[in-house]
Amino acid sequence: MKHNEIKLEKPLFYNNPFGLRFEIGPAEIGVWANRERRLLNEKYFSTALERAISIFNAAFSSSDAISIAYQIFSDGRRRIKKGSYFLRQIKTNKAEEITFTDHKELYSEDLSYKCECWRRVTVSGLKVEDAEINNILLALINTDFGSRQPSITGECYFINHTKGLVLNLYDDRGMDVVSLKKETLLPLYNTYNKWLLNYDREQMDHVFSQI
């Protein structure tokens, strides 16, 4: 699967023909241990990480050829630094290619000024073992909580060229996995059916129960 076959723009689930949307942070546990005292519920975050890792490991095998793309909104000055937390989690010496690109076709309706764009770094030619996947997933889960570290502000897309799918953990609440082929996602639909986001469950059941 080539980089440009699936547009790397949230929400992946709504922007692609076949997708699954999972609830990562379980609502029944709740994010707050004590909301008045602003104490976060550690069980919520540990469960979210366990779910994210489990789905990732089911979607990505150790032998798969993968790329990882990370992108941020820029006012024209903001850039992705080579020493960023994201890049420090990847064995860049194992990569076939590292490319920095600017994109104005992403969220184009929200780009108010000519200088605004989305800046992306794509690390290609990787295997799963070449990146600290669990650290990246944890940082994405923490993205909306300033008191929790590590944290990544931006969007991260895991691209599986072997299986032909893209995974995006958009924050602590949810994860999208999309593909150009329905059959690619069927094992995930069956195995992790209980974690499917109820809000979109009817749509997913309509698509994947028809096989």
Rank of each mutant, 00 (worst) to 15 (best):
His103Lys: 15
Gln71Phe: 07
Thr143Gln: 13
Cys117Asn: 13
Thr162Val: 10
Asn135Thr: 06
Leu106Gly: 01
Gln71Trp: 07
Leu140Cys: 11
Asp110Met: 14
Glu132Met: 03
Glu183Ser: 14
Asn57Gln: 14
Thr122Ile: 15
Ala65Tyr: 07
Leu167Ser: 04
Tyr44Met: 01
Ile68Tyr: 03
Arg88Lys: 15
Glu109Trp: 00
Tyr85Arg: 04
Thr122His: 08
Gly146Glu: 14
Tyr170Pro: 04
Met175Pro: 03
Thr153Tyr: 14
Leu180Trp: 09
Ser147Cys: 11
Arg88Thr: 08
Thr143Ala: 12
Gln149Asp: 12
Lys104Arg: 15
Glu129Gln: 06
Leu140Ser: 07
Gly154Glu: 03
Asn41Ile: 05
Ser63Glu: 15
Thr92Ala: 11
Asp172Asn: 03
Ser124Cys: 13
Glu129Lys: 14
Phe60Lys: 02
Ile133Gly: 01
Glu97Cys: 11
Ile53Met: 08
Asp130Glu: 02
Arg88Tyr: 03
Leu111Thr: 03
Ser54Cys: 05
Glu50Trp: 04
Glu105Tyr: 14
Ala95Gln: 12
Ser54Thr: 13
Gly146Pro: 00
Phe158Ile: 10
Leu49Gly: 03
Gln149Phe: 11
Thr162Glu: 09
Gln149Arg: 08
Arg51Val: 10
Ser62Trp: 10
Asn135Ile: 03
Leu169Arg: 01
Lys43Ile: 12
Thr162Arg: 04
Pro150Gly: 00
Glu97Leu: 14
Asn135Pro: 00
Gln71Ile: 06
Gly174Glu: 06
Leu106Ser: 03
His103Thr: 10
Asn160Tyr: 02
Tyr44Ser: 00
Phe56Thr: 13
Thr122Leu: 14
Leu126Lys: 00
Lys114Val: 14
Ser62Tyr: 12
Leu169Ala: 06
Ile98Glu: 02
Tyr85Gln: 05
Glu132Asn: 13
Thr162His: 08
Asp110Tyr: 14
Asn93Val: 12
Ala139Cys: 06
Phe86Pro: 01
Lys127Val: 07
Glu155Trp: 09
Leu185Phe: 03
Phe45Arg: 06
Trp118Phe: 15
Ser62Phe: 11
Asp64Met: 04
Ala131Thr: 01
Gly125Leu: 12
Ser108Asn: 11
Ile66Ser: 02
Val123Lys: 04
Lys182Arg: 15
Thr47Cys: 09
Glu109Arg: 09
Ile55Leu: 09
Leu49Gln: 10
Lys104Pro: 11
Phe45Leu: 06
Gly164Glu: 09
Leu111Asn: 04
Asp172Cys: 02
Ser46Gly: 10
Leu126Cys: 07
Tyr113Trp: 11
Thr99Tyr: 07
Tyr113Pro: 01
Asp176Val: 09
Thr47Gly: 05
Asn160Trp: 02
Phe100Val: 14
Ile136Met: 13
Asn135Cys: 07
Ala48Phe: 08
Thr122Cys: 12
Lys127Trp: 09
Asn142Pro: 05
Pro150Ala: 01
Phe73Trp: 12
Arg77His: 13
